[in-house]
Design a protein around this nucleic acid. Sequence first.
DNA 1: CAGCATCCCACAAGATACTG
DNA 2: CAGTATCTTGTGGGATGCTG
Lengths: 132, 132
Amino acid sequence: MDKCVDERMDALLGAKDLESCPVRDVLSRVSGKWSTLLLLALSDGPRRFSELKRFAPDISQRMLTKSLTDLRRDGYITRKVYPTQPPQVEYALTEEGTSFLDAWQGVVVWAKENRDRVHAARKRFDAEIDGG
Amino acid sequence: MDKCVDERMDALLGAKDLESCPVRDVLSRVSGKWSTLLLLALSDGPRRFSELKRFAPDISQRMLTKSLTDLRRDGYITRKVYPTQPPQVEYALTEEGTSFLDAWQGVVVWAKENRDRVHAARKRFDAEIDGG
DNA sequence: CAGCATCCCACAAGATACTG
DNA sequence: CAGTATCTTGTGGGATGCTG
């Protein structure tokens, strides 16, 4: 069902050679509330669990763990355990994660450049509604 | 609260001159299940409500209406009503919508190019879990 | 320190029925 | 045809407490 959506999505993009859900499938992992932020947090280099938590204090521990696991599962980051006492765990971007971030930057830059336009549009729209 | 997240996000991107939530705020509108698909559907030219519905048969009418309204509110698309009987309504990309799609294409292309890698990573990860 | 388990809630999204 | 209104459900995410 979602499959056919992606087929149409692909049709629009010029690639007809698909057999299952290419785009939505991949992007779903990265569309969560914290995923891209965590990838960005790792873009200067490896970070420990507690460093990431400090970086995003408003993330719940549950979601930090979950997001990191999901990103790891899809190959965006690695996890290295140092058998110290207490234990240390270090997360780092893979090449896949780095190349994704490159693509993602385009969207982030767009969002920043067009933020005012978007807000203006919202204001206009809401005013119209009020006006009648 | 989300504000500081965006500040950190921006810090990572090198822009410190912010005062509220620039990135997440803008992207939230476009992170829905249907938004980008509908924008893509409009990329060949204007489409009527029923055409969009046919393009994505698995969208509910409620979500089609809602997504189109949201996109319109943020200035990505326009809505033109032709006073015929029965009525016709035509949706079209704005320049803002078009330029967003340009940025978005980068991510879509990445997703398609890296789909196999992502799947392979998932398989590896799940196998490890099983193995112990 | 770096998690996992459990409970809970808000909100995105679907289903269905009705209207100008 | 192009919606609106209402009810319901699924799930992303938060809060809290416990462990190696």
